[in-house]
Amino acid sequence: MGRIFKERTSVDEALRLFLEHISPLKKTEEISLETCTGRVLAEDVISERNVPHYRRAAMDGYAVRASDTMGASPTNPVMLQLSDRVEEGSLTWVHTGAAVPEGADAVVMVEDTIAVGNLVEIRAQVYPTRNVGQVGEDIKKGDVVFEEGHLLRPCDAAVLALLGLDRAKVFKKPVVAVIPTGDELVSRQKGRDVLLPGMVLETNGLMSSLYVNKWGGIPRYLDIVPDSPESIKMAIEANMDTDMILLSGGTSVGKRDHGPEVVAALGELLVHGIGVSPGKPAAIGVINNVPVVCLPGYPVAGLVALYLFVRPGIRKLAAIPEISELILKRRLAAKVSSKIGYVNFIRVVFEGDKVRPLTGAGAGVLSSVAKADGYVLVPENIEGYDEGEEVDVFLIE
């Protein structure tokens, strides 16, 4: 099997086609607040209580009737009696967060007072509600605190706990099958010694699985599948219960590259050959509504396909809201060359306030990614950037 690339699809068009064939899963589950960070709410959260549910002191000081402090100042202090309740002419000590007693409608900060035995000299006038948090000041009963689709953060978990909740209803994570293929691959468990020439350790599946987990999916990391159409077909069919399938390796046009044609035989091959370098041999398709990404075997090319297609695909499956990616503006410390007609993935390292492209960073040199701090995407209609030009730098996760 195997075929020549008859055409090359742009990155934007390939991504559009891919996402067009993906629908959010909308399967839900309830999880504890301790594990909810990074999950997406599957329902609106409406408060069934006021927070706070009592009037609370916003400062250390004395709870008073505001009318008893009229005209008070450092040169004209008002003397009030310290008591265990607040009535006309008396006050009570309160700590920050403590309940403000009945009869009091304000708190005088301790800095504005001087205690003399059972008398307190008030040296500042306060008005009703001054330094007093009202019932429901934070959250009112009936408030929509979070809407469906909200991506939960640690601070959000604390708010849910304030509402008296200990669990959250969230969308389930998509399950992603990661299927490494290749007769030349050796599992890490069996390849602890130096391998024979032509044999390589299977690491792309490990990398893919870890990124799937990082981006909000649940990886199902499978054993190595031989370079045979029937073996690949059986592996795919055995994992049709997943929400996405990643085939690693066997995507080019050689005699042992069968992945894209197996996908075409089982379903629909949307794209084979993408205008990105490295990563041109990547392919995307769909089988019985399950999206499939064929990742190139060269590790950096596979990584590029992961970033460009798998990450947005998982985010759509998991209904994860769009979040602006951190982009740094930096000037180039050296010229960058690229191929017209391809989006070029250029690995860079920081040098002070500039970035320098890594040299000798071919598609098979995985360490070039580990050495890099980030990458620059050179558009397909540009031949490169000159030294000193400002570029957008994306951090490598």
Rank of each mutant, 00 (worst) to 15 (best):
A124F: 00
E121A: 06
G133M: 06
T129R: 01
Q134R: 11
G133P: 04
Q134W: 10
N118Y: 12
N131V: 02
P128W: 06
P128K: 11
I114A: 15
V120L: 08
V116D: 09
Q134H: 13
N131R: 12
M109P: 11
T129S: 02
D112G: 10
Y127S: 08
T113M: 13
V107T: 01
E121Q: 09
G117P: 06
R130D: 13
E121W: 09
R123M: 07
N131C: 09
V135P: 12
N131A: 11
V135Y: 13
Q125V: 11
V108C: 02
R123P: 04
Y127I: 03
G136V: 12
D112I: 06
R123G: 08
D112V: 06
T129Q: 00
V107N: 01
A115P: 14
I114C: 10
Q125L: 00
T113K: 14
T129V: 07
V107Q: 00
G136K: 14
D112H: 13
T113Y: 08
V135H: 13
N118C: 10
D112T: 05
E121K: 13
M109E: 09
L119C: 05
G136N: 12
G117V: 13
Y127P: 00
I114G: 06
Q134D: 14
M109K: 13
A124P: 00
M109D: 10
V135E: 09
V135Q: 07
A124N: 00
E111D: 10
E121G: 01
R123K: 09
L119N: 14
D112C: 13
D112S: 14
A106Y: 02
T113D: 05
M109W: 02
P128F: 04
Q134A: 12
I114V: 15
G136S: 10
V132I: 09
G136A: 13
P128T: 05
Q134Y: 09
V107Y: 01
V135S: 11
P128C: 10
E121I: 02
T129C: 00
I114E: 15
G117D: 13
T129I: 03
I114R: 15
G136M: 08
T113V: 14
P128R: 08
A124R: 06
V110E: 08
I122R: 07
I122G: 09
A115V: 15
L119I: 11
A106F: 01
A106Q: 00
A106T: 01
Q125P: 03
G117Y: 07
T113S: 15
N131P: 08
T113A: 14
A106K: 04
E121F: 02
E121R: 10
V110Q: 09
Q134G: 06
E121S: 14
A124K: 06
I122T: 05
V107A: 02
V135A: 10
Q125H: 02
A115W: 11
V135R: 14
V116H: 10
D112R: 13
I114S: 15
V120S: 05
G133W: 03
N118H: 09
V126H: 01
V108W: 03
N118Q: 14
G136R: 14
M109I: 02
A115G: 06
I114W: 11
Y127W: 01
R123S: 06
V108S: 01
D112L: 11
V108Y: 01
T129G: 00
V110T: 05
L119H: 14
V110P: 03
V120K: 09
Q134T: 12
G117L: 08
V126P: 03
P128L: 07
L119M: 12
R130N: 10
L119E: 15
E111L: 07
E111F: 03
V107W: 02
V108A: 00
V107K: 02
V126D: 03
